[in-house]
Design a protein around this nucleic acid. Sequence first.
DNA 1: ATAATAGTTGACTAGTCAGTAAACTTGAGA
DNA 2: TCTCAAGTTTACTGACTAGTCAACTATTAT
Lengths: 215, 215
Amino acid sequence: MGRTSDAKQRLMEAVGELFWTGSYDSTTIDQICEKAGVKKGSFYYFFEGKAALAEAALDFEWEKYRPNLDAIFSASVPPLERIQRHCEFTLEEQTSMKAEHGCVLGCPLCTLGTEISTQDKGLQKKVQSIMAHSLKYLETAIRDAHAAGVIHAPDAHAKASVLHAYLLGLLTQARIENDLSVLANLTSTTFELLGVKPPKAPAKIRRPTQPLETS
Amino acid sequence: MGRTSDAKQRLMEAVGELFWTGSYDSTTIDQICEKAGVKKGSFYYFFEGKAALAEAALDFEWEKYRPNLDAIFSASVPPLERIQRHCEFTLEEQTSMKAEHGCVLGCPLCTLGTEISTQDKGLQKKVQSIMAHSLKYLETAIRDAHAAGVIHAPDAHAKASVLHAYLLGLLTQARIENDLSVLANLTSTTFELLGVKPPKAPAKIRRPTQPLETS
DNA sequence: ATAATAGTTGACTAGTCAGTAAACTTGAGA
DNA sequence: TCTCAAGTTTACTGACTAGTCAACTATTAT
C-alpha cells in the first residue's frame, strides 16, 4: 500500500561516494540530500540521522561488493590464484576510481573506520564486522593453499592478518600520496610474504597515470 | 617590543590531541580555542584558519617527536636492535595513549592524512613530507643491517616500504578495533618480514588491557 | 471510487559555525 | 617614563547546520 520509492536506496548510494571522496564529518546531510535528489524531510523519514544512514549504507555496499569476493575467492579456483586475482582486482578498482574521481581513494572501510572509530560505537562495530568478514576470504585461501602444500602457513589466520594489514597500509599510503604507483608491488610483495612466486605471470600491467618512483 | 605570549604554542599543542582523539573535520575552532584557553580573536591573530594551524602543528609535533627517532635509530645501536626498539617504542606509546584516552589512537599522521588527503593539498603535502622523513630512519637501519650482513635486503627502500605499510596497516587496524592486542605480533612479524629472528629476547611483554584474540 | 498507507515537500526553528573588527591591555625598549 | 608594537577581548555578522512539522500527493487493496 501507499506509494513506492527508491529514495532510500539513492541516499545509501550517494553517501558512500561522499564519505569516500571526502570524509564522514565533512559531509553534511544537505549535501547527501542534494546528491541523492532527496529532500531533507524524506531523509528523516527514512533515517534517524547521518550515523544511521552510514550504517545502512555499509550493509548496502557490502552486499554489492560481496559477490565480487565470492567470485574472486571461488573454491573452484586454485588458492594462490585467488589471492593473485584479489590483488589485481584491488589494483584495477583503485585505478578506475582514480580515473573517475581524480584521486586515489584507498579502502573506503578503512577511511571511514579510522575517522569514526573514536566517535560512534555503532558505526565502529559495523566496520569491524565487515572487515572481519572480508578477512575470512583471505584466510580460507591461505588455509587451502597450505593444505595443498603450495605454501607453508600453519596459522592461516595469522598469515591472513599480516597480508591484510599490509594491504590496508598500502591502500592508506596510496590515498595519502595520491599515487597509484605505491600499489605497483602489491602482488609481488604479497607473494613474497607468502614465501612463493605468483602462480602465473601477472595479467597485463596497467600503466599508472603517475610516474613510478625510481628511488 | 610589545607583550609576549605562548598562546600560539598552546593552540598547536591542543589541536594535535583533538585531531587524534577525534577527527580533523569534527574539531571546531571554538573547541580548539577552549582547549587551548585562547579566545577566537587571538586564534585568528596567529593563524589564517584551521588548516594553517594544522600545518604549523604538524611541524611542531614532528620537531617534538624527531628526537625520539634520533635516539631509537642512533647509528651507535646495531641496526636490527634499532628496528626492534622502534617496534617496542610504538607499542609502549600506543599503550600509554590508550591508558590516557581510553581508545587506541593509532598513527596520528595516518589518521589525519587519510581524512584530509582529498580535501586540502597543503596539509596533504605536509603529511607526505613528514612520512617520507620518518621512513628514512627505517630505510637507513635496513641498509646498515644489509651492509653488516645480518639480513638480505639489497633494496633497502623497498624493504622499508613494506615494513612501513605493514606498520601503518596494523596501527590503523588497532585504532579501528580499539584493541591493543592487534599489535601483539608487531615485533615478531616485522622480523619475520626481515627474514631473521629478533636480535635479543624482546623486553618484558606488556599485558594488553583487552584479552588477546584466540582464533 | 475511496480510504488507508507510504512517501514527499517546503517552510520553519534554533543552534552552531567561521570569520571580523574595533576597543582594549600589556610590556619591552628608547 | 612613556610610546607603540604585540597580543587580547568582546560582541557581532551572516552563513550554514541538524532536525521538525503539518500539509500535501501518489499508490494500491478493497
